[in-house]
């Protein structure tokens, strides 16, 4: 399907509100927007990964409660339930923890059974510039493993494509569907109470 070109500002606006429309708190929705723009800056279309993550969330296919399991050799983030962990929820937390842990040369972070591992990786890389040592799949359930002694580079740190990103239209349609969930339906009452209502502009 043909691509649609979006400015980064537009991408941020829609992605933030799509995540909010999917039921995430504002803070996590803001992180979704930051991650989407970061992917676009790397020359990657964020829409396919985001669309899967959003659909997983609203399709009741992902856990939104994250717990931190004590472990001897790693900090482990995992779902507090049976389903895979939402990447939109766990990605920002993983980035938080990796930012804290990475100073320790022996640090290791494992995010277990994430619905969209590629999104978590992008979250971490957008914040820290670090890439994972282990990942099973980009857009299917799997683990993300970060290690201070063997982490790959998450990005070149350079902006590959400034200004516009081409997004896959079918994926973007899913993002837009979630964006619309963030809007309040208009009623006759709200329309007539809106700014500018009731004035005949004949001056």
């Amino acid at each position: 399907m043909a691509a649609l070109h979006l400015s980064f500002g537009e991408l941020s606006f829609y992605c933030c509100r799509a995540a909010f429309g999917a039921g995430l708190p504002w803070g996590l929705a803001e992180d979704a927007a930051v991650t989407a723009v970061w992917l676009a800056q790397q020359g990657r279309d964020p829409a396919p990964l985001l669309a899967v993550a959003l659909a997983s969330l609203t399709g009741d296919a992902a856990e939104t409660a994250v717990k931190q399991e004590p472990a001897e050799t790693a900090t482990v983030l995992m779902a507090d339930g049976e389903r895979p962990l939402s990447a939109l929820v766990s990605g920002p937390s993983a980035a938080d923890w990796w930012q804290v842990l990475k100073q320790d040369p022996a640090a290791r972070l494992v995010v277990r059974n994430v619905d969209v591992p590629g999104w978590v990786i992008a979250c971490i890389a957008s914040r820290t510039g670090d890439g994972p040592t282990g990942v099973q799949a980009d857009d299917g359930p799997g683990d993300v493993v970060m290690s201070a002694d063997g982490g790959g580079a998450g990005s070149s740190g350079e902006t590959a494509h400034a200004g516009l990103v081409a997004v896959d239209q079918s994926a973007w349609t899913i993002v837009q569907r979630h964006f619309h969930l963030s809007l309040v339906p208009s009623t006759d009452a709200s329309r007539s109470a809106g700014a500018g209502a009731g004035l005949v502009d004949t001056d």
Binding site: L24, P25, W26, G27, L28, E30, D31, K67, P92, D96
Partner: peptide, 13 residues
């Protein structure tokens, strides 16, 4: 804060 926000994501913003 990282641990707090894991339990209270509503305060992240």
């Amino acid at each position: 804060v990282a641990a707090f926000l894991l339990r209270h994501p509503q305060h992240r913003h």
